[in-house]
């Protein structure tokens, strides 16, 4: 049997600076012609520095860190979206990631159609999506609007539908980035329960959040990032206090 796990060894990740410097042929040619000494030099961003981590089945890991500490980059690296510049990355199991829920809607298509499209994006088959469609419609609970084009939706309705679709299917390895909490108060409670169900069904959870009570209630293990490095890895309560100490937040 395949074992779900995450294993990272000396992982480094750079955002290469060429990506946000010369974007056109003109500026590339221009840069050969003259060197402007006054211009600020843009370096590669060293986003993750020598990250070592092993996550075994059954573990719930919370990621803590200031903005730009590398939490999201870390999750996207786990999902295989970002290439690592060095080290070893092994992620085994079906990865399901919830990063930006509102991406990938087609404004001119109806809610129902978008349920199918989003499912296809996640790599599911049309047959499977038809099977779970009613369940998603019921959860989103946006009434007759489900048969209207998405562009007629309010922002809140879009979030509800996106949430309902994205959380309909779980995975062995679940990666979450600040997605708990969507829609109005009524929906919030429902969303939170569903999230917890999803978390329970998954074997491994890695969650990035600034919401300490949630992190502490879900996770046992806490990892603190500081400027791209893991500065603490251990019990979640200690992780929270470490985070507060490093960032000068009063407890």
């Amino acid at each position: 049997m395949k074992r779900n796990r995450i294993l990272l060894k000396d992982v480094n990740l750079y955002y290469s600076s060429v990506a946000f410097k010369e974007r056109s042929l003109k500026s590339l040619l221009g840069s050969f012609m003259k060197r402007d000494p006054g211009k600020a030099v843009i370096h590669d961003v060293h986003a993750l520095k020598n990250v070592n981590l092993e996550v075994l089945p059954g573990e719930r890991v919370g990621l803590l860190g200031h903005n730009g500490a590398g939490k999201s980059t870390f999750l996207k690296m786990l999902a295989g979206l970002y290439p690592i510049s060095g080290g070893l990355r092994i992620v085994e199991g079906t990865v399901r990631s919830l990063f930006d829920l509102s991406l990938g809607f087609e404004p001119d298509a109806t809610g129902r159609e978008n349920i199918l499209y989003r499912g296809l994006l996640l790599g599911l088959s049309p047959r499977f999506m038809r099977k779970i469609e009613e369940e998603i419609v019921a959860f989103a609970d946006i009434g007759e609007f489900i048969d209207y084009p998405i562009k007629t939706y309010s922002a809140g309705m879009q979030v509800r539908l996106a949430f309902a679709i994205s959380t309909a299917v779980g995975g062995d390895v679940l990666l979450l980035d600040e997605v708990i909490g969507a829609g109005d108060a009524n929906f919030m409670g429902k969303a939170k329960r569903r999230m917890l169900e999803l978390v329970e069904r998954s074997e491994i959870l890695v969650l990035a959040s600034h919401d300490f009570p949630t992190v502490q209630s879900i996770c046992q293990r806490g990892v603190v990032f500081h400027h791209g490095e893991i500065v603490f890895d251990g019990d979640v309560k200690e992780a929270v206090s470490t985070y507060k100490k490093i960032n000068g937040v009063s407890a």
Binding site: L7, K9, N52, E54, I90, V231, F232, D233, G234
Partner: peptide, 17 residues
């Protein structure tokens, strides 16, 4: 920083790759 526990031996990794 807590150094990370139980890594697999290198040979396993190379087999994997």
């Amino acid at each position: 920083m807590r150094s990370n526990t139980h890594f697999l031996p290198d040979s396993v990794n190379t087999v994997y790759q």
